[in-house]
């Protein structure tokens, strides 16, 4: 990672070890951004402008430490993509409380902690972009995904309220709601269920990582400084 005097933009992306997070990290690196990523485990992503932090996004002290390291290392933070998320496909009657705790810890608490710490850095420069991750499972009210959908509903709510709270700091907060993208997150769901879900979209196909990147790019554009508190669902939900 280059020194603090470097004036290239810096972005923090959570959940970069694999899947969409990894894809986004690679794309922003290709474009010359400095990228700070994190996941519970080590990453094999090697790049001069990439720094990886091993942490649980629900661990407040660890998130605070990472973001202070970002401030010291990059000297600025232009954008945050709160991609880290976990799901659980199960009937509510079969879902232990521990599963709910685990999912909310990562999806809701993690997103909140990163938003808070990112806004502290961004607010000092009076500019910043935050993109949270919602899901179509919330508006589609998917059976078997009560806890996951509820956690992402909380993320949408956070996005809307934080948009107001962070607006005076020059920070926008938006969310992207992907349709199923073939990643580990949907790997455990049966093909039959996936087909039913996709049939409810206006555009009936799997999402791609490029679709998600496109929405992130829109929110991150300098010209999008009047766009905040919005959730864009892919696929026409």
């Amino acid at each position: 990672m280059n020194a603090a005097a470097d004036d290239r933009p810096a972005i923090a992306i959570t959940g970069t070890r694999k899947g969409i997070g990894r894809f986004l990290a690679e794309r922003y690196l290709e474009r010359g951004w400095r990228v700070m990523g994190c996941s519970r485990d080590a990453s094999d992503l090697v790049h001069d402008d990439y720094r990886h932090f091993e942490l649980d996004v629900g661990d407040e002290a660890a998130v605070t430490r990472m973001m202070r390291e970002v401030a010291r290392g990059a000297g600025r933070l232009d954008a945050l993509i709160n991609n880290a998320g976990i799901a659980s496909m199960n009937h509510a009657l079969l879902t232990p409380g521990a599963t709910m705790t685990r999912i909310f810890r990562t999806n809701v608490f993690g997103s909140f902690l990163f938003c808070r710490e990112a806004a502290k850095l961004m607010g000092r420069r009076k500019t910043g972009r935050i993109v949270n991750f919602a899901t179509v499972a919330t508006p589609l009210k998917l059976e078997g995904e009560a806890v996951y959908a509820a956690s992402k509903a909380a993320v949408v709510s956070l996005t809307q309220v934080l948009a107001y709270e962070f607006a005076p700091l020059g920070v926008t907060v938006n969310a992207v709601g992907p349709t199923p993208v073939p990643t580990d997150l949907v790997g455990s769901v049966s093909q039959d269920k996936m087909d039913q879900l996709i049939a409810r979209q206006a555009i009936k196909r799997y999402g791609t990582m490029e679709d998600v990147l496109n929405v992130c790019d829109f929110f991150l554009r300098p010209e999008s400084d009047f766009v905040t508190g919005q959730t864009i669902y892919l696929g026409g939900i």
Binding site: T64, R68, A71, K120, G123, R124
Partner: peptide, 26 residues
């Protein structure tokens, strides 16, 4: 109130930069 929070946040940042100490004061 917002300006006060900004002062406290900036102080957190300077503590981190000057002394390598990461505290949540706000």
């Amino acid at each position: 109130s917002l300006s006060l929070v900004q002062v406290v946040m900036a102080a957190e940042g300077y503590l981190s930069e000057m002394a390598g100490i990461d505290l949540v004061l706000a």
